[in-house]
Design a binder for these strands. Structure first.
Lengths: 214, 214
DNA sequence: ATGCCTTGACTGATCGATCAGTTAGTGTAT
DNA sequence: ATACACTAACTGATCGATCAGTCAAGGCAT
């Protein structure tokens, strides 16, 4: 009993984890400039000074939130992508599913991050270097895999395909209710994630086919 | 000569116009929370108090910037959309071009707004009501036109097509250089607007075809 | 001289960041 | 075992800077 055993620490999270979680939620809801260190500290139920003690500056905390979450997402993407057989007739669909499913958050708990993720795609200057370091390497892997799956596709076309497909994702990842509103749905129920994913893959596969045929 | 004639006011803009232009630029670069009224006043070369005199609050100034620019964009969209013959074989392509070309900014001067436009699509709570009032009516017109052009398409499918197509737009409207970077372009020249527009229409038309066939 | 613009000066509030100081745990010499 | 030294974790108080917004007064047409 002399040692603390981290194995059984279930809900008893550490202060650092509390801060990261609180920061992720608030950054997602209000953006970087809209979120105060005081609000994060209150949400995490720690003192504001502790945030600076652990992360230095607000910007470094922001970087930490994004780099950690992006690592989880991209690790999951890589695992799915490596399973794709580029010779298969459904290769493109599988590649797209590997691209879309992890950020759509089937592995629980990534929902608040979705807004940050979307924001990065259209991001300001601050975010662009983050995208470069956290997402560009993975993007290059997807682009290369697309070129393998569709013979005769140059990097420019594959990169454009990747970019446009990613754009389609971010309009449905947000879950702001606009799609349902434009659909004229009477039942207020949100769309099912699997259904969205299927339509997303249908749409982007059709788009890529059109682009690479042209 | 007793009246001010707005016809010949070329570069001699009014203070209100200067404020709106400065606000648009800064809101686009730094976002709502990242932009201070002092910075807008300096950019517009007027006093900070004048901003509050003309627009009341920062939020009202923001609304004014977006509602004015969105009106121009959507007026242009409506004009193009009304010219589309839904019986034509190229109807979908023409509809998509009507959707994409105005915000891509061929009519000069809309470039800084592109970042605001993108931000609205993935927007926070504040922006969602703005999207509803400024863009939803136009969106419904495009969705209805799509249903006319592709017989047998229900509103849900057309709305999903519209949403996904719009997502593709916002990744290329930003011009943050990522597409060129992922393409591995040696020449630092940015992509031509007309070329981007063509690929965008190719991609989204293929996607919509896939969605409506399914 | 009346009414619309425009301004400098200013307010209280909130921002991110820093500080000295407290607590708890750990190793170490006696 | 006991006393001491050192460190990581954490906090309350407070800093200067900046925030959006206010106000009385000046300029300047008609």
């Amino acid at each position: 009993m002399s040692k603390a055993e981290p194995a059984l620490e279930d809900t008893a999270t550490t202060a650092v984890d509390n801060i990261l979680l609180a920061a992720e939620i608030l950054f997602a809801e209000r953006g970087f400039d809209g979120t105060g260190m005081k609000a994060i500290a209150q949400e995490a139920q720690v003192s504001q000074a502790l945030l600076h003690y652990h992360f230095g500056t607000k910007e470094q905390l922001y970087v930490e939130v994004i780099s950690r979450r992006s690592k989880k997402i991209n690790d999951e993407r890589h695992a799915l992508l490596d399973c794709v057989d580029t010779e298969s007739s459904t290769a493109v669909r599988e590649i797209l599913e590997a691209l879309f499913r992890p950020p759509l958050g089937p592995a629980g708990g990534a929902e608040p991050y979705a807004k940050i993720f979307s924001g990065l795609v259209v991001g300001r200057e601050r975010d662009q270097q983050l995208v470069r370091s956290c997402y560009d390497p993975t993007a290059q892997r997807f682009i290369a895999k697309l070129q393998q799956a569709i013979p005769g596709t140059d990097q420019a076309t594959a990169a454009m395909s990747y970019t446009l497909a990613l754009g389609s994702l971010i309009t449905v990842i947000n879950r702001n209710g606009r799609v349902e509103r434009l659909m004229g749905k009477q039942d207020k129920a949100a769309l099912d994630t699997e259904e969205i994913l299927r339509k997303l893959v249908d749409f982007t596969e059709g788009g890529i086919t059109a682009l690479t045929k042209a």
